[in-house]
Design a protein around this nucleic acid. Structure first.
Lengths: 358, 358
DNA sequence: ATTAGTAGTGAAAACGTTTGGATGAGTTAG
DNA sequence: CTAACTCATCCAAACGTTTTCACTACTAAT
């Protein structure tokens, strides 16, 4: 069957002439009530007798009525849109956040609109313009933006509800939803220590970054637990990129005291360490154990697959959406919510070499 | 500075009493013209003298006026929203598509709403529900969904404008925007042949998939160009996943005639081949050249960095948005648009081993 | 000078919902 | 039996645009 361009171009606008849009008026007429009553049913308001309510619902169902999103938006001055501001790092994580928030938002009749921040320096203006333009009813701020003190300071005076995911800086009045990466780092390190590792190194992101600090703290918690001191841990800092992981990995592996295990603050840097290990001819995990954070796809694609930490994205985003869309009378205790993370053990860690060799 | 929860909860709704929203009425009053004229300027319609237009624009600028998206949507019965349907594979590519479409869409006053298809089997229903719910004005279908004959067949009768990115199946009446991966595969292979490789292998996605067929065709074009035949190419098929690349890579490397170069239909599978090479102790690129497709981040993170093919995402999405939002009177020639792709040469390819050894 | 055509402008009517105040029907207290 | 009150319902007015159509003033052709 050949189709000629001219008869199949863009869909003919008037293709379904008979399909007249059914409005709330129509429903009201059919049900023999006023628009207002139908509106009440739509919005689950009280003031309608159970009998009438059931009747109206039945009529709506029968007519296949779907309230007009645009009209609702205008009249109620809500857009039924939620914004999600993000930075470009770690695409799979961003998409996870999106999927999680969408699932929750859609269930409540909302849609999620994403907005990429190109220049972190001018992030606040960028976000404000976006929110004004899109008319979103609320904003989700994802890491690493949610860590940016400057952005939050500039945004805190704005009118719309906000939530930040995995952000630190408790001194800003933006509610936050976090997961317990400190505890996760603790149990991760704990396993390494149990395996017999004593020469540990940590490659952090920037020293001032929240995730770096929290994950480092967790490692130190584990050291303390095993009666070790801060001296037993070599600490270096990267910037969460593959390249920085590679550089610091090389430095560590070529240094005087080579660690038997390297804990990285994210998977990208762990990938960099893999690269460094390949260059130095160091076998993972036989001669070097490596762990990451975030459980991004790269973690399973590295060889050998990387032990990492997975955060409960679905649950976190569901709560974020709920906080944004819920009625504004909300208990203050919601301002910080914390979830537990899960260590995903793979084949990048093993009992250290010397123990077997002895 | 300590902040108590009760005084910083959600932003007080009435915090800025003085900030009265400025409407089109206000602008009209200030400019001394009617609403209609302001509307004309907003929508770049003709019928306003240049002088008046400039004056109105100036007033709008001065007042910091931003037209209300909701009201526009209701009155014009457009939502000013564009949908982007996607599958979860290759997150970085999806975000690239998003960034590209957003850039173009925002410039035209549109926002982009993403929708993930969970179950490819029920994709059509899923998309239809999404479009009805969100009220998007148009839909962008991304690969691999844009290759799904079933989805397109079910969607083609719908009312909204659609565009598919990088999809095949010319027999469906949905306009498509592609890039020339066949030519890219040709020049990629051409370089390998020039380097002296004669034992070539190709790891495709599913044999029936459009990208597989086109990229394979490009390789064969190159073989023909160098006077070689189909027998000089070993062809195996995976499914675009890391795992399948690894399996097929192992099979190829452990087989009787080991190829000196493997062309993979995407980067994920190339990563799998790296894995296989590591397992077999085959050095890249000294003993084996490898190439990928898509230029995803993994391409630069592999060791050694992977030669790949980059498609002009920005330009493609800009066109997609333009096609969706433009007035419906459009030349039929727009139904298929093709862009050129770019080979990104990195360190995963080299002159084959035996030539140096001879 | 008259007429036809056209570019610029404006008043008013949609668009489909929510919202506030008014109306009417029951119910209870005096 | 009336007054006060509650509850369900309804009418009309927003909400801030676009759209339709009518009008004016100007130019060009007769």
């Amino acid at each position: 069957m050949v189709c000629r361009p001219e008869d199949v171009g863009f869909p003919a606008v008037g293709s379904g002439m008979s399909k007249k849009t059914i409005t709330i008026n129509e429903i009201a007429r059919l049900a023999g009530v006023s628009k207002k009553s139908v509106s009440r049913v739509l919005n689950d308001e009280q003031g309608v007798s159970d009998k009438t309510r059931a009747h109206i619902k039945h009529i709506m169902q029968e007519a296949g009525y779907e309230p007009d999103r645009r009209a609702r938006a205008l009249a109620s001055s809500r857009s039924l849109l939620l914004g999600l501001a993000y930075n470009n790092r770690n695409p799979s994580y961003i998409l996870d956040l999106l999927a999680g928030s969408q699932r929750a938002a859609n269930a409540l009749g909302y849609e999620v609109v994403m907005h990429q921040i190109a220049d972190e320096g001018a992030a606040a203006d960028d976000v404000i313009r976006f929110m004004r333009r899109s008319g979103c009813d609320g904003l989700i701020i994802t890491p690493p933006l949610s860590e940016s003190a400057r952005l939050l300071a500039d945004l805190v005076s704005e009118d719309w509800p906000m939530v930040r995911v995995a952000g630190d800086h408790a001194d800003f009045a933006v509610p936050q939803i976090r997961y317990n990466d400190r505890t996760a780092a603790l149990s991760l390190t704990n396993q390494l220590l149990k395996d017999g590792h004593r020469e540990l190194a940590f490659i952090g992101g920037p020293a001032a970054a929240g995730p770096t600090k929290r994950r480092l703290a967790g490692i130190q918690d584990a050291l303390t637990l095993h009666g070790l001191t801060a001296d037993d841990l070599t600490i270096v800092y990267g910037d969460f990129t593959f390249e920085s992981g590679k550089q610091q990995g090389l430095a560590l592996l070529q240094g005087s005291t080579r660690p038997s295990a390297i804990v990285c603050a994210n998977d990208e840097m762990a990938a960099g360490v893999y690269h460094a290990a390949a260059v130095c001819g160091v076998a993972i995990p036989a001669e070097l154990s490596v762990t990451g954070f975030d459980d991004s796809p790269v973690a399973s694609h590295l060889y050998p697959p990387l032990t990492s930490v997975r955060q409960p994205v679905q649950a976190m985003m569901a709560l974020a959406v709920q906080m944004l869309t819920g009625d504004s009378k909300r208990p203050p205790s919601d301002r910080i919510a914390q979830f537990d993370a899960e260590v995903v053990a793979r084949e990048s860690t093993a009992v250290p070499h010397p123990i077997n060799a002895d």
